[in-house]
């Protein structure tokens, strides 16, 4: 995880770069979110009100003000994935993780989300875990992905 200070130093001290800073920092954090403390420090650094930063974060679904699991699992629910059994894959994920949409596992490892098109319709159904996209999903494949991710942590 990079320190906020390091990320801030990568960009000009200009409110124009707010979104870049927010995205870059959120991606670098295991908790995938911008905390109130982060907002306060970015506000001081860029000399813009905290309310403006919260406004931007709350506008983009990609940005979060709530902590998320280490792995954010996003299953696509658009039409091609849907007709290729994405709903069933979602149920498998619910079963495996013990959480439903928008929730995080008690061990803070996984957050389950539903997303719009990931651009992999030809290999649907698809899901994304952090920056990695997985396609042609089957229940067995999903089970392996999740268990591999669990293994990675151990």
């Amino acid at each position: 995880m990079m320190l906020l200070k390091e990320i801030l130093s990568k960009y000009p001290q200009d409110p124009e770069y707010l979104i870049e800073i927010l995205l870059d920092y959120q991606t670098s954090k295991k908790t995938h979110y911008i905390s109130a403390e982060d907002v306060s420090r970015i506000s001081q650094h860029l000399d813009i009100p905290e309310s403006q930063i919260c406004s931007v974060i709350s506008f983009y679904t990609l940005l979060s003000m709530e902590p998320k699991g280490r792995y954010v699992v996003q299953i696509c629910h658009d039409v091609p994935c849907f007709v290729n059994d994405a709903a069933n894959i979602y149920e498998v994920l619910v079963e495996l993780l013990g959480i439903s949409e928008g929730e995080t596992t008690p061990d803070n490892l996984f957050t389950l989300e539903i997303t719009e098109c990931l651009g992999c319709c030809n290999e649907s159904p698809a899901m994304r875990v952090n920056n990695q996209v997985y396609t042609n999903l089957t229940p067995a494949k999903v089970e392996k992905i999740i268990s591999d991710l669990r293994g990675e942590v151990k």
């Binding site: 009100p49 309310s51 403006q52 930063i53 919260c54 406004s55 506008f59």
Partner: peptide, 25 residues
């Protein structure tokens, strides 16, 4: 608040029909 008074206590939180004008958090 933001532009005339440089304070920025209020802003739009959320988007579309769920948006509301409030202080941060």
């Amino acid at each position: 608040c933001k532009n005339v008074q440089s304070m920025g206590v209020l802003d739009v939180m959320g988007r579309s029909k769920d948006s509301k004008i409030t202080p941060a958090y």
